[in-house]
Design a binder for these strands. Sequence first.
DNA 1: GATGGTTTTATGTATGCACATAATAATTTG
DNA 2: CAAATTATTATGTGCATACATAAAACCATC
Lengths: 233, 233
Amino acid sequence: MNTPTFRNWQSVQSEVLRRIHAREWKPGDLIPNEAALALEFGCARTTVNRALQAVAETGLLDRRRKAGTRVAQQPVAKATLDIAVIRAEIEERAQKYGYQLIARQMDVPPAAISGAMRTSATVQLLHIRALHLADDAPYALENRWINTGVATAAAKVAFDTISANEWLLQHVPYTHGEIAFSANCATKMDSEVLNCPLGSALFTIDRLTWDKDAAVTKVRILFAPGHQLRTGI
Amino acid sequence: MNTPTFRNWQSVQSEVLRRIHAREWKPGDLIPNEAALALEFGCARTTVNRALQAVAETGLLDRRRKAGTRVAQQPVAKATLDIAVIRAEIEERAQKYGYQLIARQMDVPPAAISGAMRTSATVQLLHIRALHLADDAPYALENRWINTGVATAAAKVAFDTISANEWLLQHVPYTHGEIAFSANCATKMDSEVLNCPLGSALFTIDRLTWDKDAAVTKVRILFAPGHQLRTGI
DNA sequence: GATGGTTTTATGTATGCACATAATAATTTG
DNA sequence: CAAATTATTATGTGCATACATAAAACCATC
């Protein structure tokens, strides 16, 4: 029996993945420890460690000190979605990007918004509604609230030529955020702007962005019917 | 000027993130090279490398050999979604899981299915329709095609007590897959099973799973109205 | 001044070693 | 025998070093 040598951690990783997929190591199994694998693969333990860490990040392995490394019982598929700026998303597909500002005004938001953003219920936020177009067809409807107490510079931007989606990303820092995907029926207003039948199922992204403990912006993006978000697993 | 030392790569990472968020390093900026940062941080280049690699994985840094490391112009937000087994998803929220098989039969699939799965247009696949329930309320409708030429053992499973969703994950290996999220209107059949109004917007997951170059299964899961998929960014 | 080869440089990564840390196993103690 | 203590062990990580690799910068040539 020959033991092919594995030069780099990527090749070790793919061998590990092969064994998991081929059920040589079954869900729940304890796999050999790093030192043993290093010996078998003919490389340093560091290299095996790097490979196993990478696999563990995908959720296929569970690692615990002293307890060892075992194949996950229920391999949770981790799908990594790239949420790009809408303009980039459209241009990526070689389509012509268009942008149209619908409304821009300071407004006291509904309680649901101020609640989620933890802003005072009486304070005004910058409310922006805008349409993104791909090849002149409606692509997505952006409905955004900006906390001008945090993103002060935004108060002076017209958002008539650049979308808030893009401007904020380039000018306002944030530390973390929450994102949710859902499906919603097109209201009368939605259907008119997106030029689709009333009640169409619209793929929806809700996003709330924070800078430390202060909400920066909350946005709902309704995509035109048929929109898909894809990725590999 | 004091130079605090950074003991581990995580602390280097958070310092790097701080500088990016604080706009000390602005989008597009070339940041100092690894050797310089190692000197500044009082640690080994390896440690800086590990930290920068981790940040680059989140899309906040662009790294190229020789060209150096620069802050991404348009930081693509990478949302990592955990796609768990539906039963686990429900039990996670301390709800009671229920399962109901609706139909199970060998069928020649529509061209769209056999085309996507690259199976012969005339070969029969195992077609399964089932309902998942949370606290006795309809939660998700699973519509699945299984390639019994690959997942041979599936042909003998009744799928009346365990869902294909769960059984496949535990018994059939796969190498990779594609996943897509979208919104769809409830058809008459959907609305009856999910007990929701006709035309409701349903959050939809389409998933196609491969074992090397052979399709294992293709599934569409329609979630009851109001379903959200959430994550942090 | 365009072309093509060479040098330089920043990142990518393997390795051996040392020590940290967490969790289990073994052992001592009351 | 149960509880507390200690030993053991597998992973986690830092460091110095060496070499690999990609790509930009430089330079010689026609």
